[in-house]
Computed example of a mutant assay.
Amino acid sequence: MDKEINEISFNQFKLTPRDLRVEDLKPGLILKFKTELPKERHEELIQLYKTHDFFEVSIGDSETKIMRFGRPFYSEHDNIIKYHIILVSKEYDENVNGDRPVHDSDPNMGNIIAFNNAYIEELENLLIDKKNLNREEIQKLRTKSEKNIPNKKFEFGKLDDVDKYAS
């Protein structure tokens, strides 16, 4: 990998990385960096994130990897959006990440997820019992919510200022 990486590009984005950290994990690679884009490109980046697909990433002048987005962080400032971008190589997912449950990284996350699921199920049953909604309406609500997961996940990454966030 280049000692000095001046550009990371993918899907018509040419980004100048700041505070770049390269984690060469053998097998696999994770790139973490800060960058900026004009506000008018923000929706385009969100759409790419929402696909959950892998894409080709050019790293500097000499290396290309198949990667996906990790958890995004961003902050809005006048006419620009600052990002802390995490890109994860396909090799990492295939050989390291595997089928590890999402809550393994945080012991409290399993409790939070279980509580929220139980709470929602109880709320659904209460709405049905009180005849406010029927099972079909609940299923439509669940389907709509599932489609909105990528938008909500992206919103969780909004910060006051990405530059205050340690990469």
Rank of each mutant, 00 (worst) to 15 (best):
residue 2 D to S: 15
residue 3 K to Y: 10
residue 6 N to A: 07
residue 7 E to H: 13
residue 7 E to A: 15
residue 9 S to E: 03
residue 18 R to L: 13
residue 19 D to G: 07
residue 20 L to I: 07
residue 20 L to A: 03
residue 22 V to D: 00
residue 23 E to T: 04
residue 33 F to M: 01
residue 33 F to N: 00
residue 34 K to H: 10
residue 34 K to G: 06
residue 34 K to Q: 13
residue 35 T to Q: 02
residue 37 L to V: 05
residue 38 P to C: 02
residue 39 K to D: 00
residue 41 R to P: 02
residue 43 E to S: 03
residue 46 I to S: 03
residue 49 Y to S: 01
residue 50 K to N: 13
residue 51 T to E: 12
residue 54 F to M: 09
residue 62 S to E: 10
residue 69 F to Y: 14
residue 70 G to E: 03
residue 73 F to M: 04
residue 76 E to H: 11
residue 79 N to C: 05
residue 80 I to R: 08
residue 80 I to E: 01
residue 84 H to P: 00
residue 85 I to H: 04
residue 87 L to M: 04
residue 89 S to I: 00
residue 90 K to R: 08
residue 93 D to P: 00
residue 97 N to R: 10
residue 98 G to H: 09
residue 98 G to P: 01
residue 99 D to C: 11
residue 103 H to C: 05
residue 104 D to N: 12
residue 105 S to E: 11
residue 109 M to C: 11
residue 110 G to C: 07
residue 111 N to Y: 04
residue 113 I to C: 01
residue 113 I to F: 10
residue 114 A to N: 10
residue 115 F to M: 08
residue 116 N to G: 02
residue 121 E to Y: 12
residue 121 E to T: 13
residue 122 E to W: 10
residue 123 L to R: 14
residue 123 L to P: 10
residue 123 L to A: 15
residue 127 L to A: 15
residue 127 L to Y: 14
residue 129 D to L: 11
residue 132 N to P: 01
residue 134 N to H: 14
residue 136 E to V: 14
residue 137 E to G: 08
residue 137 E to Y: 06
residue 137 E to C: 05
residue 138 I to L: 11
residue 139 Q to E: 12
residue 145 S to G: 15
residue 151 N to F: 14
residue 152 K to F: 06
residue 154 F to P: 05
residue 154 F to C: 05
residue 155 E to M: 07
residue 157 G to K: 00
residue 158 K to E: 07
residue 161 D to M: 02
residue 163 D to K: 07
residue 164 K to G: 04
residue 166 A to R: 07
